[in-house]
Nucleic acid binder design. Structure first.
Lengths: 210, 210
DNA sequence: CCAGTATATATGTGTTGTCCTATACTTGTT
DNA sequence: AACAAGTATAGGACAACACATATATACTGG
């Protein structure tokens, strides 16, 4: 299981509580390549502990609930190393958006274009936040760990950028086709498709993950 | 749920059995953006039927088990249309490979490079099969459904290509850094890292798919 | 003063997805 | 004749993930 190994990885960098794993590691540092629910983190830690891959030191606290500081064991480290060295097949692309698109033939033109533009906007935002986080790191990472961390950020950014480019191409294709299907009246009312940008607010959803 | 709507989408194109949904639709046509297990397909069909979104016509067969030919209902169609028009946030990137990479600092150089090259090879293969499927379609799709289908293929291909490019960049960075960490002995054994590169590197893009 | 946020862990429950097995007959292969 | 593969559906078991709630306290802002 991937989450197990991600946790082992973080714990090898430094011992930590489940709380920190969730709020610091997964929410801030790893969110661009793996996300995890709080309950899932704690349950996974339990499982790792019974399997002796991690060890917990209970720390008494008067004012707050006791903290359990987890650290990785030798067995855990060995398991992690073995897992890391393993090649596996890349996960298949799995995106509800593509299902929508695949079956959107009967959707009104504006809705279809809106769908694509909404997605592009969302991706643009995501790219921006990746850029910010990427800029936070040093320009020239000195240790290998930092470089690898940077590379995962690059992977995410590359991915998002590619999707944006694909959407732009798709929009062009669709706009051209729509125009040719119902040709523009001579008057110049051609703006049916291109201009609506700012006006449309069909952002059905807009939950910020986590 | 996405699978439900993918099934509704396929059933709207034509009534079908669960068997065909799995073996024709998901395995052959939709595998590049959504995959589904056989048991999952049948169970989902059951659920859709009890919710009256699809309807089954049982067809007696003497020699084989009865077929159940599912078709979409009006309610199902309405539900599908509503779902398609809904914008949602793009799914977060979720890739075990990036976990590996993130924590691979202590991996021996060769293993690390091997990991990246294995992944690139796997992606290359995937890209090839996408190209083949893309070439099967007509060059100039006439109806919108075909165009949209094509676009989903493009999305998958774009995605894979972007990942390959990212890996190539990463390999270059890592190779340079490794070289500088343990400088090449004067004898000229420097080919440890460079050689595989030129052999295949440029097959990566070359977009003459259609 | 009350609400909200942060610290910290835990559990219940439901959904989605994977793997495996069972059934049953036909056709093609070695 | 034996065995695999194709047609066709079904269900058990389980892993992974998501959503919600519970507990307990301290601090901060309106």
């Amino acid at each position: 299981m991937s989450l197990e190994h991600a946790i082992l990885g973080f714990l090898r960098e430094r011992p930590m509580t489940g709380y920190d794993l969730k709020n610091v590691c997964f929410d801030e540092s790893a969110s661009h390549f793996w996300t995890a629910d709080q309950s899932q983190v704690y349950r996974t830690l339990d499982r790792l502990e019974t399997r002796r891959l991690v060890r917990a030191k209970r720390e008494r606290q008067t004012s707050r609930p006791d903290r359990k500081i987890y650290s990785i064991t030798d067995t855990g480290g060995a398991e992690l190393d073995a897992w890391i060295a393993r090649s596996d097949t890349p996960p298949p692309l799995r995106d509800p958006f593509l299902i929508r698109l695949r079956f959107a033939a009967d959707l009104p033109d504006d809705d279809l274009l809106g769908l694509l533009r909404d997605r592009r906007d969302a991706l643009q935002e995501r790219l921006e936040s990746l850029r910010v986080r990427s800029a936070e790191g040093s320009a020239e990472p000195r240790d290998r760990a930092t470089l690898l961390h940077r590379l995962t950020l690059d992977a995410a950014a590359t991915d998002v950028r590619a999707e944006i480019d694909w959407i732009d191409d798709s929009l062009e294709l669709l706009e051209a086709r729509i125009e040719q299907e119902n040709p523009t009246p001579p008057g110049g009312q051609s703006r049916l498709f291109s201009p609506a940008r700012g006006a449309r607010g069909s952002v059905t959803d807009e939950g910020s993950a986590t």
